[in-house]
Amino acid sequence: MNHTLSVLVENQPGVLTRVASLFARRGFNIESLAVGPTEREDWSRITLRVDCSQHSIDQVVKQLYKLINVLKVNEMTSDDAIERELMLVRVTAQPKDRADIIRLAEVFGGRVCDVGPTSLMFEAIEHPDTLYAFEEILKPYGIKELVRTGRVAMRKATTERTRSSRMRVLA
């Protein structure tokens, strides 16, 4: 099962290595990893996507908390969080095909960011699943190069759980 972990860490040298090596040492595969600044200069946030059992993820969360530089670990599901990822993709596009491809890309929120003689570069910021769909659609045209940032996530103000408990009250 896939899990998204959002790990708030102190912004210090070596902290990414500590987190990443913990996953390696405990035998977990990281599917996706995104690191960046947060609302505070002395904090960073690491968003990880891992595939493992619930027991294992509980163990990982506890192990993460043992790292001195880790401040907070949130486990998120697609239901209670907004998840986004940025993709850049260069696709073969002869001049006659450009209009078609651009129209198609719009469906997936893809925006042209560079035009070459026989290619187009798109950027898209979407839910990672949408990006996979977008990639599938572009494949027949010939993908020359593709890069994704790894997903980032943030919990929704109203989560599935609080909504459902409200429903029970209403019922």
Partner: peptide, 16 residues
């Protein structure tokens, strides 16, 4: 050194 010791220490410091 800090890299080598990372998985076997409770914490480590490289003083800069």
């Amino acid at each position: 050194t800090t890299g080598i010791f990372m998985p076997i220490v409770k914490h480590s410091y490289l003083v800069t």
